[in-house]
Design a protein around this nucleic acid. Structure first.
Lengths: 198, 198
DNA sequence: TTTAATATGGAGGCAGCCTCCGTTTTGCAA
DNA sequence: TTGCAAAACGGAGGCTGCCTCCATATTAAA
């Protein structure tokens, strides 16, 4: 056993991943990005495979479900959204940080009008958010907890509620007056979040 | 006007509608109600036709699009929702009437978990609501206007905003904690709707 | 080089969408 | 009643998409 070299760790991973595999994976993600952008989350997976010049079988091996592919396409950007939370918290009071983050998120979800439907279709928030390491949930939790601690918002809400609201409000994407309306709704929601006297 | 056979307007309508047509229409609506309830708004139209013991062609002739069928199934109930608005307004102050109506609507949309997805899939509220004679829009408008007149809610919202929020909040249907969450969110939204001092 | 592990890709089976059109039913006029 | 044309029926057929399976090709390592 002279050639026991680079045993990094974990179990025996004897082989380097194959080059064609990595290449096709990239092609697929790139093609998916384009096709999803054009046709929405319901786009045909076969079209994506064709457009990546790859067999449909290859697509399914790399991404067993549509959601896996969606996640691969949007993982990075969703991560950025999550990272915005601590930054906002550092810059301003928790209440304003939360408001701003909700705006950011809603704008983003609306722009990539692919994600909200996917979330919805998968029966609520879990899938993409959870699969992406609970990043979004974590961000929201951070924001809400801080604001509650400081007494800037009422304590009878949790991150889950607001996440639900966020996805819901992101939903009307295609309509014309959408953005202004969503912005008003976020403000109303935030006002409602203030500690109530009565 | 008891038996006004006169041609109100438009062209001559010489024939009585055929009996089989009416019969099949009913069968289809009934079958659709059952199948949609069981499988959701994405249910197979061919299954509905089969279950109504009617050819697929007949289904399509009566209801050219899935949305037409959905609308036929839910038209009556959506109407009832609309009728609740004036009743609530007669019973209690506008603010409470609005809150109660939103709760009713959300509960209803959640129960018939078929409608919200359909609304969403058709890119926002218009379709079913609009086609059902703008009933829902009308109801919401009535409630909001009254509350604004009385100074019970802020004046920088319109019925469209709240409708959007309503549909959005109805969206998480399948999740476990859904109902409680939606209820909290309605309360928060309502608190946010109070005239703001700042 | 050789070879075994790994990846490929598309055929094939299934299901749903929707249209088209030959057949059947039905309302109405005679 | 009967005859008939308008109206309605219904399902075959063409198309597309989903997903699986496996014979073939590629590749990392020996």
């Amino acid at each position: 056993m002279s050639a026991d070299e680079s045993r990094q760790e974990t179990e025996p991973s004897p082989r380097r991943p194959r080059a064609d595999s990595a290449r096709n994976r990239e092609r697929l993600i790139e093609a998916a990005r384009a096709v999803f952008a054009k046709e929405g989350a319901e786009a045909s997976l076969e079209e994506i495979a064709r457009s990546a010049q790859v067999g449909i079988g290859t697509l399914y091996r790399h991404f067993p479900s549509r959601l896996d592919l969606l996640e691969a396409v949007y993982r990075r950007e969703v991560g950025q959204l999550a990272e915005a939370a601590p930054r906002l918290l550092a810059e301003r009071p928790p209440f304003e940080a939360l408001r701003e983050w909700m705006r950011l998120s809603i704008d983003y979800l609306a722009a990539k009008r692919v994600i909200a439907p996917a979330l919805a279709a998968s029966a609520g928030a879990p899938q993409i958010y959870a699969t992406s390491g609970g990043l979004i949930t974590g961000a929201m939790t951070q924001l809400v907890e801080r604001a509650v601690e400081r007494g800037e918002i009422r304590s009878d809400v949790d991150a889950g509620d607001l996440l639900r609201a966020m996805v819901g409000l992101s939903y009307g994407y295609t309509e014309p007056g959408w953005e202004a309306s969503a912005r008003r709704l976020v403000d109303i929601l935030m006002d409602g979040l203030r500690p109530q006297d009565g």
